[in-house]
Design a binder for these strands. Sequence first.
RNA 1: GCCCGGAUGGCGGAAUUGGUAGACGCGUCAGACUCAAAAUCUGGUAUCUUCACGGAUGUGCAGGUUCGAUUCCUGUUCCGGGCACCA
Length: 1157
Amino acid sequence: MEYNFSEIEKKWQDWWTANEIYKVSNDSSKPKYYVLDMFPYPSGAGLHVGHPLGYIASDIYARYKRLKGFNVLHPMGYDAFGLPAEQYAIEHGIHPAVSTAQNIQNFRKQMDKIAFSFDWSREVNTSDPSYYKWTQWIFLQLFKSFYNRQTKKAESIDVLVASFEKDGNEYHPFPNQNFQFRPTVNGQPSTGNTFTAEQWNNFSEKQQQDILMEYRLAYCGYGEVNWCEALGTVLANDEVVNGVSERGGYPVVKKKLRQWYLRITEYADRLLEGLETVDFSEAMKEMQTNWIGKSYGAEIDFKISDSDKKLRVFTTRPDTIFGVDFMVVAPEHELVEEITTPEQKQEVEEYITWVKSRSERERMAEKTISGAFTGAYAINPFDNREVPVYISEYVLAGYGTGAIMAVPCGDERDFRFAKHFDIEITNIIGEAFNGKEANPTKDAELENSNFLTGMLMRDAIKIVVEEIEDLGYGKAKVNYKMRDAAFSRQRYWGEPFPIVWKDGIAYPLDESELPLELPPMEDIKPGKDGEGPLSNNLNWIEVPASSIIDLTPNPSPKERGAKSSMPGYITSTPEQWKILSVYAKENRRNKTEAENKLWQELRNRNLNGCKFRRQHPVAGYIPDFVCLEKKLIVEIDGEYHNKEEQRKFDEVRTEWLKEYEYKLIRFTNDEVIDHLPQVLQKISESLIAGDDTGVAVAPSPLERAGGEVALRESSTMPGYAGSSWYFLRYMDPHNNETFCSKKASDYWNQVDVYVGGTEHAVGHLLYSRMWTKFLFDLGLISFDEPYKKLLNQGMIQGSSRFVYRVALWYEGKDGQEKPNFPQIVVSKGQYGNYKAKKEEFDSIIRTVVAKISSSAKIEAYSIYESHVDVNIVDGIELDIEKFKQWRNGEYANAIFILEDGSIYSESSTSKYICGVETEKMSKSKFNTVDPSDLVDKYGADTFRMYEMFLGPVEQSKPWDTKGIEGVHRFLRKFWRLFYKEVATAPSPLERAGGEVIVTNDKATDAELKILHKAIKKIEEDTERFSYNTAVSAFMVCTNELADLKCHKKEILQPLVIMLSSYAPFIAEELYHTLGNEGSVLDAVYPTFDAKYLVESSKEYPISVNGKLRTTINISLDASQKEVEEIVLQNDVIQKWLDGKEPKKIIFIKNRMVNIVI
RNA sequence: GCCCGGAUGGCGGAAUUGGUAGACGCGUCAGACUCAAAAUCUGGUAUCUUCACGGAUGUGCAGGUUCGAUUCCUGUUCCGGGCACCA
């Protein structure tokens, strides 16, 4: 029988689904194992071959662990909030919920083909209210908590309030030392950053709340963002290029906006300590450590000359205090304005304006020195030396105190700055400084340094710090590079904050009001003054103030009878139409029985003379039937609608259509088929009612509240909110009482293996580690690190293919390309000639042009590289016929100059060779490969094994489809160990007569050796995620068994079981071929027995002076002396010794022998 | 600019602890089967040199440590990832 993968894969996929083979219980006597993939963002582009790499790796491991007797949790879901969907909505008018639902369906379809052992009953989606209810809930806990530095954990804010009431903030100073606390009590300004219990009790509510905000783990503050006025929106650093927006090229400036933050800095030390308890790569730990950036140093205050102001700097090198030649302050530092002298004012302001347009990335990456002198001088507290104060972009406001003391002899940037501004450099390290470049050493002896002179810098640090503290010039300080995490986005498509503002105070919603659902909005555009799009939705954003005080639930938009400011159109915009009409056409083709039945009645104005349209786009939706005049939509719920996610989708749709003042009625499939007359009656009634059923407009909240209105937070949460805790939700995905029951999290505990890319090294991984620690502090879970082990998967890069297009210019055409002239493309080798042997190539082009037109004369020509779809290139050879059809026949009439310089015709023997380059995989580069295409062609098993065979999981590598055949051949060869194949038969049909050839004969030692060698290798490799070598071990052992013509069940069954984690379909089929009942997933992993691999001798490599000269077979029992004798007698060695005595003979048992002469 | 990775035949890669560099697969060449093609099977395939045996060179580049280095150290080049609103 032939290995018919499509039949086999369909068969077992259905069988597994029917038997719910992947369903995992929280209740099992087996030990647990949790294998998790990083959340995918369901992008519109669908999966490409890079995505499944990690999923296959984790799937193999999950299946392997199951065979090893574990209860394995291996879930999948979607990180579905995000900017791309919102951007798509803005550009195409398709609601994010809709495009996201479509994308998810597409992802799921693609994933299902690859046979992942995901327990889909646990699927989560961060944009689903039943999920983000708990994201909001955790946010509220963060909001209601502070970090108690005494107990080193998060605690309820009530604890803090109680402490304030009793002792003021004596025991809990403000976490942010830069915070300037200046409330007035009874008209008197307070001093310092402390307040007493009495003061606290006398503060107004607003004052108290402002103070508490300084402690909350989720708090609202102000932060600088890249603001683009023209787009009315905030931009990411990489969306800003040279001071203008990447999209549109509009100016971008820094702007302070109100932002929510997570006080992750409070967890900095614990995040560092935690790294010691987890199994992450050293590189990963290093990246996180560097990100947190803990450094020890000192804060020193410098007085400003002729002023009462002080400039506070942070330095890690207080030992260089006598080498300070100038100060540099961040341009946005609040002191700048106060200390700048009138003469310098203009220069400073101009510089600040310029810096405002620079992204932080640009500022850090900039090599060119820039800055401006403020005109002010700072006084070194130790020697009273006055040094100039500059501003420069290389000092960032957010790091340290936003000001540095510059020591040009010890710091490279300071040195370059000094050179640029001609500042005299003080040398405090003698010969260690050569005057040409700074020397950042800590090991030089200090000179010119007052009381430190003669000391080693390293030792001086401690002494200066003590001195600084004693003299009151400053204090020792631990600094972190990490900043609090900005937690709000001025976007629509994210979790709404469960916060209501009134008189500048943030009130949390009552937990019973969660989830606070994202309201449907038709037009997603930025709000005013940097507010999020939600601020435009007055019906949602405005809340009666009374609802805060008594915490009564707010009426839903539905209850309020939302009415939007709808634009006039009743059907889709041209843009929407363009996209949706394709789907609509598809839907019309694939009509169901019910749809057809109803359509026959509705068409031709059968019902009240109203015209119905079928699958006609309305806004961003395609209703089954719509009567545009009466604004009535009729939907039929087929099987398709029974799915959970589809229902959600439908709810959104209904909500939306209401906004358009459409009415929607819905029937089930069965109703239409079995009760058509009743259905028609109902539609008819709705049509009549439709005449006067305008949506009632309820009074606005403002009216109801009698003018007392509070506002919801208009920002939404960032992408990492939902993904910071999702691993917990999988444990208990349907729980309506809590985010995850303690019982479930106690059972599943930490994620044992977490698979994902290094691009998440410092973002997602740090945030989710912090959330875990927080939930642990509150006692909600019993572990404080989410991921026990991390496996980093490499990226799969695209392998782009190029054709070389000749652009011709003709005489008299003014540098214009002649229209209607066939395209000319040249093969890669000829493109090489164009560069190397121009004359030879010129004559080819002339010949070609002459052939096309005798009159055309070329003035000049040049050649451009142009991406071509990798899927129509076989390796590097272009499929010319497919290429001619590509992109609607853009190249249909093209002339191809082949590798040998000839012109392509049907009888050509030469080929068209494409250029190759490794680039990021992206649609615009035509180098994406859809896994589904490969699965269709070779089967999921082949695809899975090939992805693993490409190379180590951790390593990035370019994708090349070419090698997949080899893996496919291996699976067929493996198949032939079980089934006889008449290879010489002329057709597959005739070859299919082969029968099962597995025998129950006793295996020979040689066969057992092959088997156990494979068990050892494959088990070890699987255990350490070295899948490429494991696949290779399968190949080796299959080749060896085929050579021995071994068809014994004793040998084959263990192999099938091992193979099942890599190629589950073929393994399941062959497992049944061997006569087993049940699924191979529940088989037991074979046990390795070392006794089959015992060797008595080894073919030793013999080197002379480290160079291999020969090999000799020597018994493994031989002693060094015996080995020396054997080796020295060997002819080859004799020759190399050339009569000399060896100085030394190195013998390492079971390894090698080396003779040193 | 800063932090983290990576670099081995024509290609993807192997060498797990410093011990036979190139396993396995692709590609390619030759052969078998076939009227032919496909499929399948067998064998060769780092480079240079040699009729051959063999020899020399070779793991981005330049050094170093070692009896011995793809592996350890120093420097350096190029490529990839991250740098806080892409996820």
